[in-house]
Design a protein around this nucleic acid. Sequence first.
DNA 1: TCGCATATATAAGAATCCTATAGATAAGAG
DNA 2: CTCTTATCTATAGGATTCTTATATATGCGA
Lengths: 110, 110
Amino acid sequence: MIGAGIKRGTAELAILSVLEGGALHGYEMARRIEERTKGSLRFTLAALYPMLYRMELRGWIRGNWETSGNGRRRRCYRLTLAGKKKLSPLRKEWAELFGALRRLTKVSPA
Amino acid sequence: MIGAGIKRGTAELAILSVLEGGALHGYEMARRIEERTKGSLRFTLAALYPMLYRMELRGWIRGNWETSGNGRRRRCYRLTLAGKKKLSPLRKEWAELFGALRRLTKVSPA
DNA sequence: TCGCATATATAAGAATCCTATAGATAAGAG
DNA sequence: CTCTTATCTATAGGATTCTTATATATGCGA
């Protein structure tokens, strides 16, 4: 799995990305992220929940309590318009970082 | 330029990478990193110096004071053996992160 | 001599991750 | 029926790594 120091800042992109496919609650987001990245990227719930609150405060996602068929209480989040708009430049910024690191690390041969 | 939240953890890789080409002092490292990434990745000296101390404590780089021809006092760092060994898995970890984010973000069409 | 590039250093604060801990309900095993 | 496991949310305390602001000092060109 990818270490904590390196993956800083990825949670935001990860959450916005998995929410693109529809509304999800925190627990399920964690599973999707791990599944889609084949276990490379994994977040503890204790990291995800505060991040979800922050992102809701910023207006990128909106959560509402839902009671599923089993009677389970969950907070389901969906992308807001602002969240959708945020996704594109965020992807671009990450792409730019990848390019920058590739240039930086490629120069000297191993 | 790439924002602060996203580039967390890149300083380590950046420093090790620029030092692969030979010994450098902090001020020059900052310039090389900015130059090689065409301005995408930029570090303030206030971020670099503490990072250099930490990396020296971890044994990845070693610095010694040198007095250049102008009489300028600089601390020049070079990679240690441990630092060279660290570089390869660190690159791999970043590559894995790139792959993970690509999978995560690619799934849903824009 | 004034300002700019060079060069290092520290302090205070913000953001995001971690582990540990807590509580609650549903479903399946024995 | 009870015990364990999976589901689900939540907070506290700590570590790391960025930020801006500030301090200090030298060499060089205008």
